[in-house]
Design a binder for these strands. Structure first.
Lengths: 219, 219
DNA sequence: CCAACATTCTAAAGATGATTAGAATGTAAC
DNA sequence: GTTACATTCTAATCATCTTTAGAATGTTGG
């Protein structure tokens, strides 16, 4: 029952990576891990799954060498094995988005602001942020902000926005971002800010999309 | 039993693509299809599997929208849905090769000439081929050559080399290529040519690797 | 050393995937 | 229309993956 063709072995090895990305839960874990390293419990909470199940999926990802485990006291921190893994996730997502109508439809239904940034608009946003013409806020949990964030962005986690509205200059355009196009936190933030009378917008980029475009990430 | 988290839907759609690339046989089919469109029978032969099984795998790939079927008389021709699909395959392979030692070991055991081309050496090979300093031969079946080949390459299918040795200038360096790093035809060609007294070398690039680097493909 | 806790391992259930053989479909050539 | 042929569909079997619960592991802080 061993493979007969000599190069069967090779395809089997690549299929290890393929199998690792064949589960929606594991893709969600990869998406979360591209925000920075996280413990099993954090990952389980963020993905709304049982810790045991998260652990099992992480084991599969670890066996495919897509993630690495690092013990820190009682906790184990998982992280992506490299930026190429984050890019593989982006690549997979891009292919799915290009060819699967269902995904595009679901994305449009889900997000209030479906506009994506092109390379130029990324650069121009960066420039406007640098000049202070817009306020860029990172609405992810603060740990993720500290693991890496867009240049000139300030941390304003979704759960704290209502308490911290005073920090935002009233007239200025506010641009919110979160974990990427599959994350809804920036939509919620924009909805909340607009209700409070701010001019707010979202971008679908997260740090992974930003970095994959060659733009800088601050830590 | 419906998905509770709103973005579960999104990850599930991307996982459709993930599942499609989770099988070694399907990866081999994608590799073959990145050489150009092929019929089910050709694919089955090239991958050394039963036609019915090839058809079943192609169905999965088609449902994930990675390949397209085009009827032509009694035959059905399958092709990749786009160059992004070929690039996804290259991306997956690159991630596997970077992180899985087993794959690197298997590749080294398998190939006599494990050297890969960097961007510069690709350009310099192109230049040498243009100047006629080296003879580049495409040892794949002729149909694949006609579907697209490296610039300045001439078709010399592995099965015909022995009969057509007279076409090759004796003193000159010969560079053979085939379907890519997982294909052994260029290794065989080099072994054969050297035995006949030629100076022969292989490159691991195929047309997909060449094109992904932004270099031109002739058809 | 003991208790608390994060994580993994084991075992078992159901769900899904791979593979094969035989029947069915649809097109082309006569 | 009938025949030949490439491909797909159906059904059945076996293997693998997913998920859950309970037991086990390993580390920290007393």
């Amino acid at each position: 029952m061993k493979p007969r063709k000599p190069n069967d072995l090779l395809f089997e090895q690549v299929a290890r990576v393929g199998k690792a990305v064949a589960s929606p839960k594991r893709l969600e874990l990869l998406d979360l891990l591209s925000q920075g390293e996280k413990t099993v419990e954090t990952l389980a909470n963020d993905a709304s799954i049982d810790v045991k199940l998260a652990s099992a999926h992480l084991k599969v990802l670890k066996e495919a060498r897509l993630v690495e485990a690092r013990r820190e006291g009682r906790f184990i921190n998982y992280s992506l094995s490299g930026s190429d893994v984050a890019n593989l996730w982006l690549n997979l997502r891009a292919v799915a988005e290009k060819h699967l109508v269902e995904l595009r439809v679901a994305l449009e239904l889900m997000s209030s602001a479906p506009e994506r940034l092109t390379a130029e608009s990324r650069a121009s946003l960066l420039e406007k942020a640098r000049l202070g013409e817009v306020i860029v806020i990172d609405v992810r949990p603060e740990v993720e902000y500290h693991a890496g964030h867009l240049p000139f962005a300030r941390s304003m986690p979704l759960s704290e926005i209502e308490r911290r509205l005073a920090e935002l200059p009233p007239g200025k355009e506010i641009v919110a971002y979160c974990r990427g196009p599959f994350c809804l936190m920036s939509d919620e933030a924009v909805g909340l800010l607009r209700k409070k009378g701010f001019r707010a917008q979202k971008i679908t980029d997260g740090v992974a999309e930003w970095a994959a475009d060659g733009l800088p990430i601050e830590a």
